[in-house]
Amino acid sequence: MLEQPLPYSTKLPVALPSRQVRVWRERIIAGILFLAAISSVVTTLVIIYILFAETVIFFEKVMEIHQESLFEALVEFFTSTDWSPLIEPISIGILPLLSGTFTTCFVASCVAIPLGTIAAIYLSEFAPAKARELLKPILEILAGIPTVVYGYFALLVVTPFLQKIILGVQQFFSPGKEPWEYYELPGFNMLGAGIVVGLMVLPYVTSLTEDALQAVPVQLREGSYAMGATRLQTAIKVLMPAAASGIVAAYILGLSRAIGETMIVSVAAGLQPKFTFNPLEGASTTTAFIVSVSLGDLPHGSLEYQSIFAAGIMLFFATLILNVAGYFFSRRYREVY
């Protein structure tokens, strides 16, 4: 134990810069750090501003073309089931794009949520340390594959596979018809694209769900085992409820990625806006529409050009709401313990 505080060493050669220099140097460093920190905030604000400004111009143009009020334009935007801002007669109902986005996301959730949850429970509670060390990096590789590769995987592997399954099921239940008499899944369809989007977000859902399970305090885990529970009982009856808000956050963040996903649906789900919730059909999602329109030569200021921003702002709100919800849930589960 120390009897008295250590005296300051007088032997070390200390060359302190003058106080003035030190203060200014600290200020400059703080300024540089602040600029770095603020850059993403400024970028976000600028993007939001441009989205809003261009969307306002979009509605002004629509009001001019249709000779209607802003209210009527907005009603058309949210209720019309026809989206054709490029071709006469011009119609600007956003619903077909939203239905495409919703349908692919629904299919993606049906894949990613059950698989991701099961995989996370396995990794967190069942996998021996060695298996986890092997599986986690592979999951991360899955998250690193360029999405355009996923898109072609959906178009060239998953869809033909689904076509064969659907044909096989029909032949099983009503055999003996000519091959062309059976229903054939279109080459561009939301089912195949949605499944692959689900596989793409699977690593995020798995990883975040596993984090939520791992964050459950060890006392709860041991308390359950001490009652004679098995691993599965502990995982389902104690850990999942304890980590519920974190798990919900994982689902929501996965979903928001699925909504924003562009390349897979552009390549595999079709580019024709169509108001349908049938995953067997092809339809353009909001993101796919933006990509397909911006690929052409768009005159700046045309209605086509402005329509991108109107679609973009819908996308922005959808992912914003989901991200905020995910943030809220993940914060809540951290506060529980």
Binding site: Q219, E222, A226, M227, G228, K237, V238, P241, A242
Partner: peptide
């Protein structure tokens, strides 16, 4: 089987959620 016959109370109260 052992844990079904021997209960345990921990240092920190750990009620389940």
């Amino acid at each position: 089987e052992v844990r079904m016959q021997i209960g345990m109370v921990f240092q920190k109260p750990n009620p389940f959620p």
